Amino acid sequence: MDLQNQADGVLIVLDDVDTIDQLDAILGTRDLLFQGSKIIITTRHEPLLRAYEVCHIHKVGNLDYNESLELFSWHAFGQNRPIDGFIEVSEWVIQYCGGLPLAIKFFGSSLLGKSLNVWKIQLEKLKAIPDYQVIEKLKISNDSLQDDHDKNLFLYVTCFFVGTDEDWVVTILDGCDFYTMIGIQNLIDRCLLMIDKHKNLVMHQFVQEMGKEIVHQELPKELGEHSRL
């Protein structure tokens, strides 16, 4: 019996792929899959996909306002919109999360079933002290950078250069013995950095807070000794 003609195609999902070896393990044998099979790959490292002939690359952006509010509401209220009395505070959370699904789901779940007063107190705390449970999860992206050069470049950009012109940043950091253009591209490939239409460096609020926390943890009780003072 010819199984290739008798069986339906299969759907394979590879989540959070980070190395070429992980892709080789399955894509190297894709000719053995049934006709019509589909492979979906999620990764923070877009260049990995360029090693193979893929049909379509889809960049997942941040959620817009309506998507964010719906996702938050399902986790905070068990329905697709905020309950009466919680609309204003829900909108503040949505603005604070900046369309990042990880943060939206986390805050929605953490506030589920709590009173409005507790919500307001929690949000006041967030204004002063970022929630480091979210930031800790985001450190996975920083840890995945391939070498200390890119990790150090990320910290310098985080602390000094967010919102500044790319060419100016390259000029400054090249003078400090960085391979800046390559490093910036590596940060973009890891979804840690973006370049806007004005050629300014742009970083999500939580990613920037994550970088600053890495610096803070070097010497948490001796602020004057921080490496990026």
Rank of each mutant, 00 (worst) to 15 (best):
Q6E: 14
G9L: 00
N80W: 05
T171A: 10
Y65M: 04
A7H: 06
I184Y: 15
V157S: 04
I104M: 04
Q205G: 11
K137W: 02
E222S: 06
H198M: 03
L116S: 09
V89C: 05
L49P: 01
L112N: 12
R44H: 07
G99N: 11
M203F: 09
G113A: 05
N62I: 08
A76E: 10
T42N: 14
W168G: 00
D15F: 04
G9Q: 05
D177W: 05
E166D: 05
E70N: 02
I184C: 14
T164I: 10
N186Q: 12
T19F: 02
Y179D: 12
L201H: 12
D177F: 06
D167W: 10
D84A: 11
F206G: 04
E136M: 01
N152E: 14
I40C: 05
V54I: 09
G78H: 10
A25P: 00
C176A: 02
I20T: 12
E70Y: 01
E225K: 04
L49A: 15
S115T: 14
L126R: 10
L48G: 08
E222G: 00
I40S: 09
Q217D: 07
F161I: 06
D15Y: 13
G113L: 00
L71F: 01
V60R: 00
Q205T: 15
E222R: 00
L100I: 03
D150V: 08
H58V: 06
K197C: 08
E91K: 14
D148F: 12
Q95A: 06
L123I: 10
E213C: 00
S227Y: 10
I140L: 13
D165Y: 15
E53G: 07
H204G: 15
I20L: 15
D147C: 10
L187F: 15
K197T: 08
